[in-house]
């Protein structure tokens, strides 16, 4: 009798496992597709942005600093910095959507692997982990982008990178808080499990 009762449960468990495996392979496929479709564009754009940054920092800004000329009331190095910032901004912002696609694929894979390691998983849990990892990855990407712009913005005006950094700080605090909240349900599962175990212990 008990075998018959257990059968539907086992089937359900097997179905869930298959769903998770399917989700994992879907994540890998999505990620591979994203790398195939936008990987080259992202790599080229990042390479171009880094090249512009390098030439600006090592060549154009030192030349402009040596000139000490005023052009329409503005120092030449500030004008050069503005041009470089504008060029990098166009490149970075156009590639941002593609980077988001890449990172969401990557966070999907990480979430799937993390879920597999932690054992007790379902698709909802993996989605929660994915949202959490997404938030952390976005903060990292924004910080790296800020690093590209900071020096040039400081050439335009010393206050601009500071104001931008403060805005990024405020945004990242909320982004990190949202990331942590995304896995609140998973944490809740563990705390309930621990509470039940301690309760059993205290009854002994």
């Amino acid at each position: 009798m008990s075998i018959k009762k257990d059968e539907p449960k086992r089937e359900e468990h097997g179905l869930e496992e298959r769903k998770i495996e399917a989700y994992g392979s879907k994540m890998y496929q999505e990620s591979a597709k994203a790398v195939r479709e936008v990987g080259t564009r992202v790599a080229l754009s990042i390479g171009a942005a880094i090249l512009i940054w390098l030439f600006g920092t090592l060549v154009f800004i030192p030349i402009a600093d040596g000139m000490q000329q005023i052009f329409f009331g503005y120092p030449v190095n500030a004008i050069i910095s503005t041009i470089i910032v504008a060029a990098m901004a166009i490149i970075v912002f156009t590639v941002f959507v593609d980077v988001r696609r890449l990172t969401s694929g990557l966070s999907g894979i990480l979430a799937y692997q993390f879920g597999k390691i932690s054992g007790d998983v379902d698709i909802e849990s993996i989605k929660h982990y994915r949202t959490a990892l997404d938030g952390v990855l976005y903060v990292v990407i924004v910080v790296l982008s800020y690093l590209l712009f900071a020096n040039y913005l400081a050439q335009i005006h010393a206050a601009i990178p500071a104001i931008l950094l403060i805005l990024i700080v405020v945004w990242s605090i909320f982004a990190l808080w949202r990331s942590a909240r995304a896995i609140a349900a998973e944490i809740g599962k563990y705390t309930k499990k621990v509470a039940n175990e301690i309760e059993k212990l205290s009854e002994v």
């Binding site: 942590a180 609140a184 349900a185 944490i187 621990v194 509470a195």
Partner: peptide, 8 residues
């Protein structure tokens, strides 16, 4: 409250 505490 464990969930809220650990999330925070």
């Amino acid at each position: 409250h464990g969930q809220k505490t650990l999330t925070s």
